[in-house]
């Protein structure tokens, strides 16, 4: 595609956000909506700038990130191993999959009251909720990726006498890799959603979710909107980092398109 064409597409894409921004500014400054209900874009920007110059925001972000990273590590690592086990062994699949698919139907947020009662109001339940959220997508996608390794690769591996760990490392995992990565990306998104939910639903003193909730308690609209934007920005940054990492890992490896 030509460069001018690309630029044109970009411009069409930012037209809508700009229009909405103008509309936002207009309805508030013209007095249709009180700025107590909807703060002016400028006010939100000022709040954002103020937040970013304060140490407190860094602390909120750091605490939220720590929860996500721990939860993500626990959830995806166990999900990967569990999915691998079920994908490799038909018997393991028959034993575990029915229970797994049944328990999976419990909406994740529903675990919060129980987990809080069991583990108290500290960091553990929040990390656990994030971990549960991260667990399912990675398990499901690792499972399907490993189970659906094309038969022709398995046959080829058998011809060359690949077995056990060598078979898993050289044939199964590379073939399942795209699916596992998809699972990990989904896990990341889910864990970020659940973290904010956990920070709102389980009493805490810090975190991005808490920051937004403080804004609500004090009826500080600028803070609420700024907090939402920060949560989106962080989610976006993490997704981009993972995307770049995946690209770096996949560089030079062209995967065959399955028909």
């Amino acid at each position: 595609m030509k460069r001018t064409e690309k630029i044109k597409i970009k411009l069409i894409g930012i037209a809508l956000p700009i229009l909405l921004l103008i509309l936002w500014q207009y309805v508030v400054s013209a007095g249709f909506v009180s700025h107590h209900i909807l703060p002016l874009p400028g006010q939100v920007l000022t709040t954002l700038v103020r937040l970013f110059t304060e140490e407190k925001l860094i602390l909120h972000i750091a605490i939220s990130l720590r929860r996500v990273i721990y939860g993500l590590l626990i959830g995806t690592a166990s999900g990967f191993l569990f999915g691998l086990l079920m994908g490799l062994s038909r018997t393991a699949e028959k034993i575990f999959a029915p229970t797994f698919h049944t328990v999976r139907q419990v909406p994740l947020i529903g675990w919060i009251p129980l987990i809080v009662m069991w583990f108290g109001m500290n960091e553990l339940p929040r990390i656990l909720i994030v971990a549960i959220g991260a667990f399912y997508p990675t398990t499901l996608n690792t499972f399907s990726g490993v189970r659906d390794v094309p038969r022709r690769y398995k046959e080829l591996a058998a011809v060359y006498g690949y077995k056990g760990f060598k078979l898993i490392r050289r044939v199964i995992l590379p073939s399942a890799f795209p699916s596992i990565i998809t699972g990990f990306t989904l896990s990341l998104g889910m864990s970020w959603v659940l973290l904010i939910a956990a920070e709102l639903l389980i009493e805490t003193i810090a975190g991005i979710g808490k920051l937004i909730d403080v804004g609500r308690d004090t009826f500080n609209m600028e803070l609420v909107v700024a907090g939402i934007l920060i949560s989106g920005l962080l989610g976006f940054t993490m997704t981009k980092i993972v995307e770049k990492l995946v690209q770096a890992v996949q560089k030079g490896r062209v995967f065959e398109q399955e028909l």
């Binding site: 970020w192 959603v193 991005i208 609500r216 907090g227 989106g232 976006f236």
Partner: peptide, 14 residues
């Protein structure tokens, strides 16, 4: 990209 639960406080205020 915004985790939708972050919108809950705003929705309740509105």
């Amino acid at each position: 990209q915004v985790p939708q639960f972050a919108l809950m406080p705003l929705i309740i205020l509105w």
